[in-house]
Every structure is written in C-alpha cells, then in structure tokens.
Design a protein around this nucleic acid. Structure first.
Lengths: 203, 203, 203, 203
DNA sequence: ACGTGCGGGACACCCCGTTAGT
DNA sequence: ACTAACGGGGTGTCCCGCACGT
C-alpha cells in the first residue's frame, strides 16, 4: 500500500524520461517537443509539468540520470578496475563502434556530445552538468592509465591526463565523423587510428 | 544599368548570408529565426525569400559558400603546398586555438561541426554538403602528409589517410571540449596532446 | 491603387482594435483573450501579431487611440470652449449617466477607469498612458472653470484645480458605484450629489 | 483533542485567507494563482480545496471576512458613535491617505474597490457581497451625519444620504487617482478637495 | 528585384480542479 | 484532515512561408 503511490509516481517520472530521451536524442533539445514527449510517454502535459518544472528541468534531469547512466555503463564501468587500460579502452571503442555500425540505424552520434554541442553555449546549467560528466570521464580514463603504468602495461613516460584528454576528445570526433559521413568504414577506420595511437603507448 | 542591378542584387544576397552566419552559428540552424536574420541584414523577409527558396536553401547556401570559405581559409590553405605538413598542421591548430582562447568570447565551437552535429541526421542535403567538406578536409590533409613523406619530413610507414582522419576528428573533439569546458587550459592541453601525437610521426 | 494596400492594412488594424475594445472592456486586460479578440475581428493570430507586437502593445494602442478618443468625445469636447462650465459639466454628467442607465445593459463602468484600476500598479507603460489621460482631463476641466471665472459664471474664490480634481475623481466614483450597485437610482443620486456640489460654486 | 483539531483546522483556513489577500490584492482576483496562494500559505492545494470549494468560494470568503473587517476597522468604526461626523470623516480620510502616502509602496488602491471594479460585472455573487459592503458604508456615514444634525454639528438642510453617497464615491475616486497618478501630492489635494466640501456642510 | 500584409499552426507554460491515497 | 499525482484545456508568443503589390 505504502509503496503504491510513490512507486507509481516514480514509474511515471521514469516513463517521461524514457520517452524524452529518444525525442531529444533525435531532434536536439530545443527542437524537441514536450507535446511529442508527453504523447510518447502516454502522459498528459499536466503530469509532465508536475514532475518537471519545465523543459529545462527535464533536460537537466535527463542529463543527470539517463545520460550519466548511459555514460557509466558504456564507457566508465569497463575501465573501473582494469590493470591493462590500453587494451580495455581499445576494446571499448571497438565494441561501441561495432554496435553502432551493426545497428544499421541512422547514426545519431553520442547523446552527451549532442547536448554538449547544442546547449553548452546557450545554458549554463547544461554546460555545468555536461562538463561534470566529461571531467569525470577524463578523470576515470587518466586513473586507469596510471593504474596501467603501475602494473607495467602502459609506458611510464606517457602523460595520463594528456592521453585521457585525447581519448575522450577522439570519442567526440569519431561519433561526429560517423554522423556526418554515415560511413561505417570511415568510422571504423577512425577508431582504428585511435587504437593505433594507443598501441604506441605500450612499453 | 544591368550590371548595377545585378551587382546590387548580389550584394543583398551576400548581406543576407553574412547576417545569417552569426545567427545560425549562435543559435543553431533550427532555432535560428529568419525574422532575426532579415532584421540583422536590414532586409525584408520578401527579399530573403526572393534570394533563397526557404530556410533550408539558405542553410545550404551558407554551407556551400560561407562555411566552405571559412574552412578553406583557416584550415586548408595553410597546407596547400607545404613540404613539412606536420609542422604546419601543428602551427595551424596552435594558431586557431590561440585565437579562440584570446578572443575571450563564449566558445561557440566550430561552425561546420555545429551544423554537422545538429543537421546531419535530420536533413540529407545538409549531411551531403557537410560530408563533402569533411571529406575534402581529410583529403587535403592526407595529400599534404604524402607530400611530406616524399619530402622526407614524415615517416614513411605512417598511414596518411588514417592520420588525416585522426587529425580532422581531433579538431572536432578539441573544439567540442572547449565548448563544454569553457576552459582555455584544457583546450590548449588537448591541442598539445594532438601535437605530441603528430610529433611522433617525424622520421 | 496606391491607397489599396495601406488602406486595407489600416482597416484591419482598426478592426482588431474595435474587436479588442469590448473584449477588454468586459473581461479586463489580463483576462481578455487574444484568441477571442482575433476571432471577433475575423482575423488570424498571425495578422494580429503583425499589427501589434504583443498583448501589451495592443493594450497601449487601445489606450492611445480608442480610449483617448472615447474620452475626448464624451467628456472633453463638451467643455472645449464653454463660458458656463458648471452647467456644461453638470449636463455632461447627467447625459452620460442617463445614457448608461437607459442602455439597460450590465454596467461595465468607465473603460479608462477599468484599465486604470487593473493595470496601473502592474505595468508602468499602462500607468503612464492612463495618467496622461487623467491629467489632460483634469487640466481641461480646470481651464474651463477658469474661463468660467473670467466670464463670471463661476465664483472667483473657487480653486479650479481642486474642483477639477474632485470632478474627475467623482466620475471614477460614480461609475464605480454604478458597477457594483447596478442601481440606476443610486447612480443618478450620486450624480445629483455632485451636481449639487457644483451648484454651490456659482456666484 | 476535538478542540485542538478544530482549532488547527480554523488556523489553517485563516492562514489561507491571509495569504490569499495580498496575492489577490496585488494581481486581481482572476490573475491571482491558487498555486501561489497555497505556496505563500505553506499549504498544499488539497488543503486549500478542502477548506474552500474553489477559487470563487475563496474570493467570497475573503470579501465576507477579511475585506469586511478591513472596512470596519479603517472606515466604519471611527464613525460609530461620533457626534461630530464631519470632523471624524475628514480625520479618517486624512489619516488613511497619510498612511498610504507614508508607506511609500506602490499604491494598490482600495482592496474593496479593486474587487468591485474587476468582479462586479462578471460574477453576481461577488457583486452582491460588494454591494452589501458599500451599502453598509453609505448607511453608516448617513447615520453618522444624521446624528451630527441632531447634535448640531451638521447643517440641517444637508441631505445625509446624498452626502454619504458622495463621501463613499470620493473614497473610490481618491484611491483610484492615487493608483494611476502615483502622486502623493495629487492624492492629498484630492482628499483636501473633499474635506473642503465637507467643511461647507457645517452650520 | 523587392516590400507588406497576412495565414495557419506549433510552441512552452501553467492554470484550476479532481481523484486516489495517507 | 490533509497530501500528492494527475488531467485537460487555454494562454501569449512567434515562426515560416505565401500572395499580393510596388
């Protein structure tokens, strides 16, 4: 009983977020329509407004909850405790590129990068949240590389933070390339170019 | 008479494009307002629709003319006939990053990349034009690298196309990083990470 | 020919104002619906937006044009050149009260006073325009009284500006009384109380 | 227990009314937001609807309780048993005008008059309640004047009801004038014009 | 070639009220 | 007695594009 009301509310909130994600992912934040999101979620606009103070708040929640989880699952978790970060980073890129290519759908790029490019200069709240995610990303990659250096799987003279910056930056570029080229070969080739660079960091 | 009329017409067309560029650069294509563009150009909306069939056509023309020229001047021309491409690419990145950092304004990223991220998945005409520009970019960089290999300034075992892909992709990533971090240091650091990578390609 | 376009435009603008007046008169400015106004005028909302930058601008124009003319015709013109202002002011009150009572419709009060009560504290632009009208009103009444003093129809020891203030203030109060009482007798009695006061100002 | 519960309930009801008064006073009844009122009262909307059947009922209660008390304290009580009504009415106007002027805040007029102007033509329930208050007001002033006539402080040939009507009507007008002019001098001058009129009613 | 008037539609916002639950 | 989730509707704004007319 006590669980019913609160649980139903959270479920509806989640339904809205789940419906908002693809809508915003496809059309961008500004062009996304709250009407469409509400319709996709099977929710009235009143309910949407009840759960989120406005479009901005919905976008913030999307970043803080959905996109952050997306990032954690796809990019951060695989490196959490690795002793051979170069291999795991390479694997991570190859796997994610492979999945995107295999899905065959129109390449929509990286959800986080999409929001970053569109909203960072327009809304400080967005920018802060996005920057926090990218900073965490770079931090985790750098930490993994340091662990690799201690484990002897990464050259000691490599600069973990510089490499981490380039890895994350390359992720942006690779998916951006895929988006405008719609060419799986080119995207794969871009990924391999990065992997080759990483290969050179082995002892 | 005839030449005057035609010249005036072209000038007005150019005024519209020049006004459209910052408007679209700042707000994105979809969020940009034709009213605002016409007002900024000091032109009636009738004139705008006379010169361009619609918003889409204006965007296409912007890409084909303004953005293409922008790309040529800032990134392609410096590599046109170089015999030491690595140095020139490094210089190019450092100069462009330096200018952006020095300008001190809110970082709006790369105009071409902005349109690529926003419009590539939504409009095939945009995607084609954008892809054409990026392909040319990669091609010119690859050619410059080959020239460097022949001149002995680039290691012979480097893959010109792979490196070119990574160079262009890094440009996307560096400016994307700058946009969401608003951190000149980070952006500079990212540029240096790329320069270090290029340094390793010298014989 | 040359007159056609501009004339049609002005006619439509006037249609909108004419439709806006009763809508705002009845419901107040804030509660008035632009949808309803556009529908009553037989005009699309796009056209409405073309002629007036927004609801506020429509309200301003209504004050500056329609209400100002209303005031001039009903209250200012009759006193324009009178030499016996007390009689003319009394006649003016009696006539206007009589018309309102005879119309039999629900008493909606004075359009200017309605806007004054609602919008003066909320919007400085409204307040300024309203104050300008009331100031002109008081000024014209005071001038008429001075003319009467020179003509010997008004006691010389009367204070024209003080009396004018009370006359205008009474107009507000009389129509306010009529609105809430919906009692023609009471409204007439209020008018007569003012007339009696004015009567005491004769030499 | 029972008394505690009932007392708490009444206290909450009062909190709502106390929060509703300024909100409606400032924005008008129609533009006032129940959400804002509930928030200002620190009460959930459910509680609000528990105590009042709807917005209308809340408005009625506000008139019947808060505004009526306001009227009684500021305007009726001072005349309750006076034998020199003219002086007391003058004093009442001067004090109330003085307080409003001294407060220095944006002049929001008379709460009762505000509701009268806005709601009288729109809602019969409002109109009835407002009319009742104004009728009582006029009645009390007339009675005080009659008392003055009997006490010899008011001329015997004055018409108590006519004068009372003009007094109340002037109150409306004076505060209306203050609202749109935002000019303390003008408001004071208006009050003095009324006081001068009353002065002429002394024997 | 260029300007104006105008149309239809979509947008985010947010309101008031009810119902299911505590 | 009181709360929170939720529904449906209406708001002002403003956009893009067309059809005139100059």
């Amino acid at each position: 009983m006590t669980v019913t009301q609160a649980a139903r509310s959270d479920a509806m909130r989640q339904r809205i977020l789940d419906a908002a994600f693809p809508e915003i992912y496809r059309n961008g934040f500004q062009a996304a329509s709250l009407n469409a999101i509400a319709a996709a979620a099977g929710v009235s606009k009143g309910a949407l407004f009840h759960h989120f103070a406005g479009k901005q708040a919905l976008g913030y929640a999307l970043l803080d909850e959905v996109v952050a989880r997306f990032l954690r699952d796809r990019w951060l978790a695989p490196l959490a405790q690795t002793a051979d970060p170069l291999s795991d980073i390479q694997a991570c890129f190859r796997r994610n590129i492979g999945e995107d290519v295999a899905s065959g759908s129109v390449p929509l790029g990286c959800p986080l990068n999409n929001l970053a490019q569109e909203m960072s200069p327009l809304d400080e709240g967005f920018r802060t949240r996005i920057d926090r995610l990218y900073t965490a990303w770079r931090h985790d990659v750098a930490q993994a590389l340091e662990r690799g250096q201690r484990a002897g799987t990464v050259r000691g003279d490599a600069d973990p933070r510089g490499v981490a910056t380039l890895v994350v930056l390359s992720q942006m570029g690779i998916w951006g390339t895929g988006k405008s080229s719609q060419d799986p070969v080119l995207m794969t080739q871009a990924g391999e170019a990065l992997c080759a660079y990483l290969e050179a960091l082995r002892p």
